[in-house]
Simulated scan of single mutants.
Amino acid sequence: MNYNTEKNNKVFIMGEVVSEATFSHEVYGEGFYDLNVRVMRLSGQADVLPVTVSERLITDGELKIGATLCALGQFRSYNKIENGKSRLMLTVFVRELVDMPPSKNPNSIVLSGYICKPPVYRTTPFNREIADLLVAVNRAYNKSDYIPCIAWGRNARFVKNLQVGDKIALSGRIQSREYQKKLSEYEVKTMTAYEVSVSKLAAFDSAENFDLEHEFNLYSSEKTYDNDNYEI
Protein backbone atom coordinates (compact mmCIF):
# COMPACT_ATOMS: atom_id res chain seq x y z
CA MET A 1 0.00 0.00 0.00
CA ASN A 2 1.34 3.43 -0.94
CA TYR A 3 2.10 5.55 2.12
CA ASN A 4 0.53 8.59 0.47
CA THR A 5 -2.84 6.80 0.46
CA GLU A 6 -2.69 6.00 4.18
CA LYS A 7 -4.30 9.09 5.66
CA ASN A 8 -5.47 7.75 9.03
CA ASN A 9 -1.99 7.72 10.65
CA LYS A 10 0.62 10.23 9.51
CA VAL A 11 3.65 11.48 11.42
CA PHE A 12 6.43 13.94 10.71
CA ILE A 13 9.39 14.23 13.07
CA MET A 14 12.74 15.97 12.81
CA GLY A 15 15.40 15.68 15.49
CA GLU A 16 18.81 14.48 16.60
CA VAL A 17 19.72 10.80 16.71
CA VAL A 18 20.77 10.09 20.32
CA SER A 19 21.33 6.31 20.31
CA GLU A 20 23.00 3.76 18.10
CA ALA A 21 20.70 1.89 15.72
CA THR A 22 20.19 -1.65 17.02
CA PHE A 23 18.70 -4.57 15.10
CA SER A 24 15.01 -5.10 15.87
CA HIS A 25 13.55 -7.72 13.54
CA GLU A 26 13.37 -8.99 9.98
CA VAL A 27 10.38 -9.32 7.66
CA TYR A 28 10.72 -11.15 4.32
CA GLY A 29 14.46 -10.54 4.29
CA GLU A 30 14.19 -6.84 5.18
CA GLY A 31 15.90 -5.82 8.41
CA PHE A 32 14.58 -3.13 10.73
CA TYR A 33 16.51 -1.12 13.30
CA ASP A 34 15.49 0.80 16.43
CA LEU A 35 16.98 4.07 17.62
CA ASN A 36 16.03 7.11 19.71
CA VAL A 37 15.57 10.63 18.38
CA ARG A 38 15.48 13.83 20.43
CA VAL A 39 12.85 16.27 19.14
CA MET A 40 12.86 19.77 20.60
CA ARG A 41 9.77 21.63 21.83
CA LEU A 42 9.30 25.39 21.64
CA SER A 43 9.75 25.53 25.41
CA GLY A 44 13.31 24.22 25.10
CA GLN A 45 12.37 20.84 26.55
CA ALA A 46 12.73 17.75 24.41
CA ASP A 47 10.86 14.55 23.66
CA VAL A 48 13.06 11.48 23.13
CA LEU A 49 11.09 9.23 20.81
CA PRO A 50 11.59 5.60 19.73
CA VAL A 51 12.00 5.20 15.98
CA THR A 52 12.03 2.10 13.76
CA VAL A 53 13.61 2.32 10.30
CA SER A 54 14.29 -0.17 7.50
CA GLU A 55 17.87 -0.99 6.55
CA ARG A 56 16.85 -0.12 2.99
CA LEU A 57 16.40 3.51 3.98
CA ILE A 58 19.73 3.83 5.76
CA THR A 59 22.88 4.84 3.91
CA ASP A 60 26.35 4.69 5.43
CA GLY A 61 26.67 7.11 8.34
CA GLU A 62 23.22 8.60 7.78
CA LEU A 63 21.78 7.70 11.20
CA LYS A 64 24.77 7.81 13.49
CA ILE A 65 24.54 9.56 16.88
CA GLY A 66 24.42 13.31 16.34
CA ALA A 67 22.92 13.08 12.86
CA THR A 68 19.61 14.76 12.04
CA LEU A 69 16.70 12.49 11.21
CA CYS A 70 13.90 14.00 9.13
CA ALA A 71 11.19 11.45 8.49
CA LEU A 72 7.60 10.79 7.49
CA GLY A 73 5.88 7.72 8.86
CA GLN A 74 3.29 6.31 11.24
CA PHE A 75 2.94 5.91 15.01
CA ARG A 76 2.63 2.17 15.58
CA SER A 77 2.11 -0.17 18.51
CA TYR A 78 3.04 -3.76 19.25
CA ASN A 79 2.94 -6.08 22.23
CA LYS A 80 6.12 -7.20 23.96
CA ILE A 81 6.25 -9.92 26.62
CA GLU A 82 8.23 -8.85 29.70
CA ASN A 83 8.36 -11.02 32.81
CA GLY A 84 5.43 -13.03 31.53
CA LYS A 85 3.26 -9.95 30.99
CA SER A 86 2.25 -8.23 27.77
CA ARG A 87 3.34 -4.61 27.49
CA LEU A 88 2.18 -2.14 24.83
CA MET A 89 5.17 -0.69 22.98
CA LEU A 90 5.09 2.32 20.67
CA THR A 91 7.40 3.49 17.92
CA VAL A 92 7.55 5.95 15.04
CA PHE A 93 7.73 3.65 12.02
CA VAL A 94 9.61 5.47 9.27
CA ARG A 95 8.17 5.20 5.78
CA GLU A 96 10.31 7.86 4.14
CA LEU A 97 13.44 9.84 4.98
CA VAL A 98 13.34 13.34 3.51
CA ASP A 99 16.10 15.86 2.83
CA MET A 100 13.95 18.93 3.29
CA PRO A 101 11.44 19.24 6.16
CA PRO A 102 7.88 19.83 4.91
CA SER A 103 7.30 22.30 7.78
CA LYS A 104 8.85 24.25 10.62
CA ASN A 105 7.03 22.09 13.17
CA PRO A 106 9.42 19.21 14.01
CA ASN A 107 6.78 16.97 15.63
CA SER A 108 3.30 16.52 14.19
CA ILE A 109 0.80 13.69 13.93
CA VAL A 110 -2.74 13.20 12.65
CA LEU A 111 -4.84 10.12 13.40
CA SER A 112 -8.32 8.83 12.80
CA GLY A 113 -9.62 5.80 14.64
CA TYR A 114 -11.98 4.44 17.26
CA ILE A 115 -12.22 4.88 21.01
CA CYS A 116 -11.42 1.42 22.41
CA LYS A 117 -11.48 2.09 26.19
CA PRO A 118 -13.67 4.41 28.25
CA PRO A 119 -11.87 7.80 28.46
CA VAL A 120 -10.49 8.71 31.89
CA TYR A 121 -11.20 12.31 32.90
CA ARG A 122 -9.54 14.03 35.84
CA THR A 123 -8.29 17.37 37.11
CA THR A 124 -4.82 18.24 38.39
CA PRO A 125 -4.08 19.90 41.76
CA PHE A 126 -3.89 23.14 39.74
CA ASN A 127 -7.41 22.47 38.42
CA ARG A 128 -6.33 21.67 34.87
CA GLU A 129 -8.63 19.26 33.06
CA ILE A 130 -7.07 16.16 31.48
CA ALA A 131 -8.54 13.14 29.72
CA ASP A 132 -6.72 9.96 28.72
CA LEU A 133 -8.00 7.98 25.76
CA LEU A 134 -6.86 4.94 23.79
CA VAL A 135 -7.47 5.10 20.04
CA ALA A 136 -7.48 2.05 17.76
CA VAL A 137 -6.17 3.01 14.31
CA ASN A 138 -6.69 0.54 11.47
CA ARG A 139 -3.72 -0.56 9.41
CA ALA A 140 -3.28 -2.75 6.32
CA TYR A 141 -3.64 -6.54 6.54
CA ASN A 142 -6.36 -6.34 9.22
CA LYS A 143 -3.98 -4.97 11.84
CA SER A 144 -4.58 -2.12 14.26
CA ASP A 145 -2.38 0.21 16.27
CA TYR A 146 -3.46 1.22 19.79
CA ILE A 147 -2.37 4.76 20.48
CA PRO A 148 -2.58 6.39 23.94
CA CYS A 149 -3.60 10.02 23.71
CA ILE A 150 -4.03 12.82 26.23
CA ALA A 151 -6.40 15.77 25.82
CA TRP A 152 -6.50 19.02 27.79
CA GLY A 153 -9.00 21.71 28.68
CA ARG A 154 -12.04 21.91 26.45
CA ASN A 155 -10.82 18.87 24.48
CA ALA A 156 -10.74 16.90 27.75
CA ARG A 157 -14.30 17.98 28.54
CA PHE A 158 -15.36 16.85 25.07
CA VAL A 159 -13.52 13.53 25.28
CA LYS A 160 -15.02 12.48 28.61
CA ASN A 161 -18.45 12.10 26.95
CA LEU A 162 -17.23 9.83 24.15
CA GLN A 163 -18.16 6.15 24.12
CA VAL A 164 -16.24 3.02 23.18
CA GLY A 165 -16.64 2.58 19.42
CA ASP A 166 -16.94 6.29 18.62
CA LYS A 167 -14.83 7.34 15.65
CA ILE A 168 -12.61 10.40 16.06
CA ALA A 169 -9.99 12.41 14.18
CA LEU A 170 -7.23 14.32 15.94
CA SER A 171 -3.96 16.16 15.46
CA GLY A 172 -1.17 16.93 17.87
CA ARG A 173 2.38 15.87 18.72
CA ILE A 174 4.03 12.76 20.12
CA GLN A 175 5.49 13.26 23.57
CA SER A 176 7.65 11.27 25.97
CA ARG A 177 7.04 11.34 29.72
CA GLU A 178 9.03 9.76 32.54
CA TYR A 179 7.27 8.24 35.55
CA GLN A 180 8.17 6.13 38.56
CA LYS A 181 6.95 2.53 38.75
CA LYS A 182 7.07 0.80 42.13
CA LEU A 183 8.40 -2.73 41.67
CA SER A 184 8.54 -3.63 45.34
CA GLU A 185 8.58 -2.00 48.76
CA TYR A 186 12.20 -1.01 48.22
CA GLU A 187 12.60 -0.81 44.46
CA VAL A 188 11.37 1.93 42.12
CA LYS A 189 12.10 1.99 38.40
CA THR A 190 12.01 5.05 36.12
CA MET A 191 9.92 4.28 33.04
CA THR A 192 9.09 6.28 29.92
CA ALA A 193 5.59 6.58 28.48
CA TYR A 194 4.79 7.76 24.97
CA GLU A 195 1.50 9.34 23.97
CA VAL A 196 -0.10 11.80 21.60
CA SER A 197 -0.72 15.21 23.13
CA VAL A 198 -3.90 16.35 21.37
CA SER A 199 -4.14 19.81 19.88
CA LYS A 200 -7.33 19.41 17.82
CA LEU A 201 -10.01 16.73 17.99
CA ALA A 202 -13.41 15.98 16.50
CA ALA A 203 -15.87 13.10 16.64
CA PHE A 204 -16.79 11.69 13.26
CA ASP A 205 -20.47 12.52 13.48
CA SER A 206 -19.21 16.11 13.31
CA ALA A 207 -15.94 15.37 11.52
CA GLU A 208 -16.93 14.16 8.09
CA ASN A 209 -15.31 17.35 6.78
CA PHE A 210 -12.21 16.83 8.94
CA ASP A 211 -9.72 16.41 6.08
CA LEU A 212 -6.77 14.56 7.60
CA GLU A 213 -4.46 15.36 4.70
CA HIS A 214 -5.28 19.06 4.97
CA GLU A 215 -5.02 18.90 8.75
CA PHE A 216 -1.59 17.30 8.55
CA ASN A 217 -0.30 20.00 6.23
CA LEU A 218 -1.91 22.75 8.31
CA TYR A 219 -0.77 21.43 11.67
CA SER A 220 2.73 20.77 10.39
CA SER A 221 3.10 24.36 9.26
CA GLU A 222 1.48 26.28 12.10
CA LYS A 223 3.22 27.53 15.22
CA THR A 224 2.20 25.30 18.10
CA TYR A 225 2.69 25.47 21.84
CA ASP A 226 3.39 22.98 24.59
CA ASN A 227 0.29 22.04 26.52
CA ASP A 228 1.82 23.55 29.65
CA ASN A 229 1.47 26.91 27.93
CA TYR A 230 -1.95 26.50 26.36
CA GLU A 231 -4.61 29.06 27.16
CA ILE A 232 -7.76 27.01 27.59
Rank of each mutant, 00 (worst) to 15 (best):
Y146M: 03
P106I: 03
S19V: 07
Y219W: 12
Y194H: 04
T123G: 05
I115P: 00
L162P: 00
S206E: 13
A21N: 02
Y141D: 10
N107D: 08
F75I: 11
I150D: 02
V198H: 04
Q163W: 02
S197Y: 04
G84E: 13
S77P: 02
I58Y: 01
V17E: 03
M191V: 08
H25F: 15
L97C: 01
F210C: 10
L97S: 00
S221I: 11
I13D: 01
G84N: 12
F210W: 13
K7T: 15
R154H: 05
E231V: 08
V98K: 01
Y114A: 13
R177Y: 12
C149H: 03
V37C: 11
F93C: 03
I168R: 03
V135E: 02
E30K: 13
E215R: 11
F216Q: 00
T192W: 09
F210Q: 09
E30G: 00
R56N: 09
R87E: 14
G29E: 03
Q74D: 13
F12S: 02
Y141H: 11
G31D: 08
R128M: 02
I65T: 11
E96R: 09
I65D: 09
K104Y: 09
N142T: 10
S197N: 13
F23P: 10
P118W: 06
Y186N: 15
A71D: 00
E96T: 11
T224M: 06
S54V: 01
G15V: 03
T52V: 09
P102S: 10
N9D: 05
V98S: 06
P106E: 10
P148G: 12
E6V: 14
D205E: 14
M100Q: 13
D132S: 07
N79M: 15
I13M: 03
Y179A: 09
N9F: 11
V135P: 00
I174M: 03
S176K: 05
K167H: 04
V11A: 07
E208L: 09
I115D: 04
K189Y: 12
G113C: 02
E82I: 12
N8K: 10
T52R: 11
A202I: 15
V53K: 00
P50Y: 04
T190E: 13
L111N: 05
T68M: 13
G165H: 03
P118Y: 07
T52A: 05
V110I: 15
A136I: 08
N107C: 07
S171N: 15
F75S: 04
L69D: 03
M100Y: 11
A202S: 14
Y121L: 04
P50V: 10
V18C: 08
P118D: 15
L90Y: 06
G84C: 02
Y33I: 04
